[in-house]
């Protein structure tokens, strides 16, 4: 109980900051979503209907995935600022365990991911129709696992260096790799052709796995390998948590 209390308080702190920075994040999201909508409208007319019959229905699960990815990933930006201003010294001096601190921070990222995704889920329901209860469970599980992965990953990446420029560069690199090297924008058939040697990464990317589950959940495709995608996401999120615990604490406590 005490453990949970500490964890929730750490997450609450991140959530409070999230609300204070909400305009910044809204701007980021609006920009990305606008790009995607424009792409969707254009590609709808350009893409061969034999490959993708309706690009808007194809990209909507992708948008859903990006919304949770972007917002969960945003926690890394604050962790980076905290590291440079040594606010992290304060956090590691508090009477909480290292596990509570790391789990609380990851949870902070997860919660902001879910909050931001809520609006896009409504959008998806409007465009794609209502999933069944079992598919809802699948969608939410995938969201949770992706949010844990991205929150952990962004925290880890942000603590690799105190150099602002290097930090921003590394975060951007990781961000864009996950953003674009996935099946969010392209169907799987096109991945091997378009991405070349990066195709296997796209295949095993947590983004692709989540989008697969969303497309199945919102009935865009009738079947997927649920076990493969879900197991893959569990592996990604477990690795992200372990990696965050090691790197975040090591880099914070010198």
């Amino acid at each position: 109980m005490d453990w949970l209390r500490g964890l929730l308080l750490v997450a609450q702190r991140d959530l409070a900051r999230f609300w204070r920075n909400i305009y910044w994040l809204a701007g980021q999201l609006a920009m990305n979503i606008a790009d995607l909508v424009i792409f969707a409208v254009i590609f709808r007319g350009l893409v061969n209907p034999a490959y993708i019959p309706d690009y808007i229905r194809f990209i909507t699960p992708g948008i859903l995935c990006l919304s949770i990815f972007i917002s969960a990933f945003s926690i890394g930006r604050e962790v980076g600022i905290e590291l440079r201003r040594e606010v992290t010294h304060y956090l590691v001096s508090l009477p909480v365990t290292r596990g509570q601190l790391v789990a609380g921070r990851i949870l902070g990222g997860v919660l902001r991911g879910f909050m931001y995704q809520a609006g896009f889920i409504i959008l998806a329901v409007v465009l794609m129709g209502l999933p069944s209860v079992d598919k809802w469970l699948l969608i939410l599980t995938a969201s949770l696992l992706l949010a844990v992965t991205m929150s952990g990953l962004s925290i880890t990446v942000s603590t690799l260096t105190r150099d602002f420029n290097l930090q921003a560069a590394i975060r951007s690199l990781v961000y864009f790799v996950f953003f674009f090297v996935s099946n969010v924008f392209y169907p799987e058939k096109a991945l091997a052709v378009r991405l070349g040697s990066a195709a296997p990464f796209a295949y095993y990317s947590p983004m692709s796995m989540t989008v697969n589950i969303y497309r199945y959940g919102f009935n865009y495709v009738s079947s997927i390998d649920v076990f493969f995608n879900l197991t893959g996401l569990i592996v990604w999120s477990t690795l992200a948590v372990l990696f965050t615990y090691k790197v975040y604490i090591r880099n914070l406590t010198g």
């Binding site: 308080l9 409070a16 040594e86 304060y90 009477p95």
Partner: peptide, 25 residues
């Protein structure tokens, strides 16, 4: 510990900061 350089972000407000601190301790 009271740090040499105050550990807060620029947008933090003292009351919120201290109330959260009180809760975590």
């Amino acid at each position: 510990i009271a740090f040499q350089d105050p550990k807060a972000m620029w947008i933090d407000k003292p009351y919120e900061l201290l109330t959260w601190h009180a809760r975590i301790v």
